[in-house]
Design a protein around this nucleic acid. Structure first.
Lengths: 216, 216
DNA sequence: CGGATGTATATTGTATACAATTTTAGAGTA
DNA sequence: TACTCTAAAATTGTATACAATATACATCCG
């Protein structure tokens, strides 16, 4: 039983993941053009697998490709960021509501462990991943894998911008407190309270990020 | 002003659209393997643009690719179909609620015209498209383009299976009546009634489709 | 001097050729 | 017969070579 990923990873797949990571970590910045020959040479591959990777990333929304002009790292407008957060509210509150009755003690323990990780001082570079994992653990028992995949994609797109905001620490402690509260409500199986807090949590995150985006 | 599509369409893009259409219309059936050389020869192109098209379709969820084994037309399990309809309920009811206050007389007229098309006797082969357009017209004034794109993708995936059900005419008249009712509630700006009917409409469609899927 | 036009260069798009992997078929054996 | 092993065939994955397109720049004309 595999994890859905191909065991024999092709070069194109590896390149896709690597370029995606570079976009998420900001090594490739929004609006930056991607020169195929240059990047392919840097990675030690030909342009063919790189092009296939770019096609996939374009379908996922991380780059935009214009014929004969090349690929550029996608940028999100403030309106688009707001829309993504709105989608999150609708889908995540639904998943949480489905998941709470199915949450096991093991799940709750995993959430606690995740929260401990979030409290470590050196968390910043990996915070995007860990934060997503927290939400993923909560939603997994809902048994809605397609929705979860869509949300993962949305989180990734937001992540790159969230990094800015988290770095300046403004909404960081708040997020921790809200995560803590979510676990408590989940443990108490209090669906309305948990959903309401989750919605506030997402909207708070959105507000903080959009505020810091508007500054620049 | 273009429609967002590249004016100079590359072969890979044309192939992607063509293969997607073949999947939606059932010319390529679920589970069927796609032999690159064969299909490329049939289309009169090399394998390179076809492979790029397949990568894109894989990211969109229309095919699945296994390394060194090739692409196969994706199949949806009943659970997956149910999940897609659930996502539709959450997102479409939200969009409709946003859209109703913004609907213009022109929009309502467009909905009426669309309904006339649905009533024509020769509608069956194009019904998937027309049905989507009905919903699209309703949601467009909500001003949520990303959500709309996601929904379009979901509709397309469902479409292929819906074709079976619609062909046997079971849920067809019901869908027409519900569309008619939706226009009425939109015109009256009755958000709760419209949303409630829309949710029932989507769930009715789901029920009918899933029932006919379970038969086979 | 400004603008159009043509040409050179750079970059992307596609075809062909080759390498790697999987699948298939058959021989051999218990 | 059933099974395993092996090698050939089929298929996919990648590199190289070439074609098509876009961009940059110089030249010509007003």
């Amino acid at each position: 039983m595999d994890s859905g990923l191909p065991l024999k990873r092709t070069i194109a797949d590896q390149v896709a993941e690597l370029v995606r990571q570079r976009i998420l970590t900001g090594q490739l910045k929004g609006g930056q053009p991607i020169r195929q020959e240059h990047l392919a040479a840097e990675l030690g591959v030909s342009r063919i697998p790189l092009r296939e990777a770019l096609k996939q990333l374009a379908a996922e929304g991380f780059v935009t490709i214009a014929s004969h002009k090349g690929a550029v790292v996608a940028e999100l407008s403030i309106a688009e960021v707001e829309e993504l957060f709105d989608i999150r509210v609708r889908l995540e509150s639904w998943l949480l509501q489905l998941a709470i009755p199915a949450l096991t003690e093991r799940d709750l323990a995993a959430l606690e462990r995740n929260l401990d990780e979030q409290r470590r001082p050196d968390v910043l570079p990996r915070w995007g991943d860990i934060n997503w994992r927290f939400h993923e653990i909560m939603y997994l028992p809902a048994g809605r894998p397609i929705t979860l995949k869509m949300l993962k994609n949305i989180h990734d797109k937001i992540d790159r911008y969230l990094r800015l905001e988290v770095t300046m620490r403004s909404g960081f402690d708040r997020a921790l407190r809200e995560h803590d509260g979510l676990i408590a409500f989940c443990r108490a199986r209090d669906v309305p309270a948990a959903v309401s807090l989750l919605e506030r949590h997402i909207r708070d995150t959105a507000r903080g990020l959009i505020a810091s985006l508007k500054m620049q």
